[in-house]
């Protein structure tokens, strides 16, 4: 929550001039589009007659209708308590998206036929590739962050070269480099381990900076107190500094986790049977591209949403020592 002043502010959307302004803007925007050929036109047939023939009148009637619904919606939602507001808006947006997907005329039987395999093979692979990479990336990141903060020139040089290199190259390139390049050095790895290695190294490089910033955000006095009590470096880091850095680290880490979940789709170029790979290979031969792509998209979204929930749980957990 942002800082909230105690001065009562008036609800903007309950002011007539504001509603009028919103009404005008929305109406103008929808007048720009000719929606007579769409479902909206069909829906308004009783009023405007044949949508194709209705011309400017039909266009105006549709835009007017949409605007009225929109404005009523906004005004009514403003009366609801916060939680209800959030719920309603989420639901509405979700329905809009479903309606949008529905407009592709997807074949539902095809989806339900392939969904189990998409999940047992694709989702499982995606999750385990991401999860293992996450663990490795976090370990790499802590070590590299400490190295970057150390006064040891050697450690600093290696860590900064590492972050620079792996943040600087496209992930796809890294994946190819590791899969095709390492055999040159006599190291032959399967597709899955190569993918995991590439993901760990790349995400680890980004996480290094997150950890470094988190560690640096802790007041010097914490180090001094800890060291003055006789705690060594490792103990101080583990028990004093990192636990305090975690609340700072968690939001950007949530970002990292989510984007990594989706970046794991890049290892499909190595022929790893993860979600994106399966969605494409199942959809292609039968020309059911959109079915599989949209299904995969929604699955990615659901997985990300789970991570978001986990993130907000964690944030709440760590906020407990901040209470006054």
């Amino acid at each position: 929550m942002l800082y909230q002043d105690t001065v009562e502010s008036e609800v903007l959307v309950h002011k007539p001039w504001f509603i009028a302004a919103v009404f005008a803007v929305v109406l103008a925007v929808f007048m720009l589009f000719n929606l007579t050929g769409t479902t909206f036109g069909e829906f308004m047939r009783p009023v405007i007659g044949d949508p194709e023939q209705s011309g400017l009148y039909g266009r105006f009637a549709i835009a007017f209708m949409i605007t009225v619904v929109f404005c009523l919606n906004v005004v009514f939602i403003a009366f609801a308590p916060l939680k209800v507001q959030v719920g309603i808006v989420w639901l509405e947006l979700l329905l809009l998206f479903l309606a949008f997907f529905d407009s592709f005329n997807l074949s539902l039987p095809f989806i339900s036929e392939n969904l189990p395999y998409l999940i047992t093979q694709g989702v499982v692979t995606t999750i385990y590739v991401s999860a293992i990479s996450l663990v490795f990336a976090s370990m790499i990141a802590i070590i590299a962050a400490v190295a970057k903060l150390s006064s040891n020139g050697f450690a600093y040089a290696i860590a900064s070269f590492y972050t620079s290199f792996f943040r600087g190259l496209p992930l796809l390139m890294q994946i190819y480099l590791i899969y095709l390049g390492l055999p040159q050095l006599g190291i032959i790895m399967d597709a899955v381990p190569s993918g995991i290695l590439a993901l760990s190294l790349c995400v680890g490089a980004y996480m290094t900076e997150i950890f470094r910033a988190g560690i640096q955000s802790i007041d010097r006095g914490q180090w001094e107190a800890s060291r003055s009590m006789g705690f060594g470096f490792g103990l101080t880091m583990r028990r004093i500094i990192l636990p305090q850095a975690l609340p700072v680290i968690i939001p950007p880490m949530g970002n990292m986790f989510i984007s990594m979940l989706k970046d794991s789709s890049l290892v499909s170029v190595l022929g790893v049977w993860e979600l994106t790979f399966l969605a494409r290979t199942i959809g292609q031969p039968t020309f059911h591209h959109m079915e599989m792509l949209i299904t995969a998209a929604i699955i990615y979204w659901i997985m990300s949403a789970c991570l978001e929930v986990a993130q907000s749980r964690l944030e709440r957990h760590f906020a407990r020592s901040k209470v006054r």
Binding site: A225, M229, G230, I240
Partner: peptide, 27 residues
């Protein structure tokens, strides 16, 4: 040396993520 020398700072420097009791039990 340090475990035999207690130090109290101007800005307290208590560990904010631990309870008062845990602050005292840690060392």
């Amino acid at each position: 040396v340090r475990k035999n020398v207690g130090m109290v700072f101007q800005h307290f420097n208590l560990f904010p993520h631990m309870t008062v009791l845990m602050n005292c039990m840690a060392a």
